[in-house]
């Protein structure tokens, strides 16, 4: 039994390391992507500055300018560490081009295989972008002054791990549609836009009117972005913390099961020709 576990661990560590090497090929691409990611941040900085100037320093739904900036800066760090980059398209092309046949013929679990590749690409991405993102954090360090980090950071890190798994399980489940659709790009972007809006990537969800905010808190998307960042900033407190973790992991389990069910159904209609 132990040796089986050891073998499996060795197998997926190998896949992880191969994935890392593969990601390193695109390091310049990663860097351009990370630096270009600062352009919208620049836009956010100026837009929110203007918004707070016009709010006559009365704050914006309980946020002051510094906390609002800290929110968007933290989102950039969260994205760099957790967001799947084109995993959905890679999985879809594995299915469409018949490359999953290679996996089916070996004692490899496709989900775990993909998780290994996802984690390795996140590690390389984080390593490449830690310099520009680190520089950005140092440059804007004043925005983080009022945040009780010693208290909030452990929760935020836990929620970030959950966010990575939630983002991945959603991505995986959506990519499974490639068994039925020729091209999943449009579906990916439709879901992406909903994730952005209802997940708190465009604005913190607690600036929404009460009923809308309450709805968003039950949807999975809030647990991808708003929940970890809100915890970090100390905006989510008390029982809401534990409730949040429960809801986050419930959604992870849900999307994992949906992904697995779609995989099993998809394999029944999968045909591989000429491989």
């Amino acid at each position: 039994m132990t040796s089986v576990i050891q073998q499996q661990a060795a197998l997926y560590t190998r896949i992880f390391s191969l994935g890392m090497q593969n990601s390193l090929v695109y390091r310049w691409n990663f860097l351009v992507r990370a630096i270009a990611g600062f352009v919208p941040l620049l836009g956010s900085v100026f837009l929110w500055k203007a918004v707070f100037a016009d709010a006559n320093n009365q704050g914006f739904a309980g946020y002051d300018y510094h906390v609002m900036m800290a929110y968007f800066l933290s989102l950039i760090v969260l994205d760099a560490l957790t967001s799947p980059v084109e995993d959905d398209f890679a999985i879809a092309s594995d299915i469409r081009d018949g490359r999953i046949s290679q996996v089916l013929l070996k004692p490899i679990n496709y989900f775990t295989y993909r998780v290994s590749l996802f984690l390795s690409s996140r590690l390389v991405y984080a390593a490449v972008v830690c310099v520009p993102v680190g520089a950005m954090l140092i440059f804007f360090r004043d925005y983080f002054n009022s945040i009780p980090m010693a208290h909030t950071l452990p929760y935020a890190l836990l929620a970030m791990i959950g966010s990575a798994f939630l983002q991945f399980t959603i991505t995986y489940a959506v990519a499974m549609l490639a068994f039925w659709l020729l091209e999943i790009g449009s579906v990916v972007f439709i879901i992406f836009s909903i994730e952005f809006l209802a997940g708190g990537h465009v604005f913190p969800l607690d600036v929404l009117p009460g009923p809308l905010y309450a709805i968003c808190r039950w949807l999975p998307f809030a647990y991808e972005y708003y929940f970890p960042v809100g915890l970090f900033l100390g905006r989510i407190q008390g029982d809401a913390i534990w409730q949040g973790f429960l809801v986050q992991w419930a959604w992870i389990a849900f999307f994992y099961l949906v992904g697995q069910a779609l995989w099993r159904r998809g394999l029944k209609r999968y045909t591989s020709v000429g491989n």
Binding site: A50, V51, D54, F60
Partner: peptide, 14 residues
């Protein structure tokens, strides 16, 4: 929608 949310709280931006 984003603009809608912003103008819940302010009357003018820049």
């Amino acid at each position: 929608a984003f603009i809608g949310v912003l103008y819940f709280n302010v009357n003018e931006i820049a």
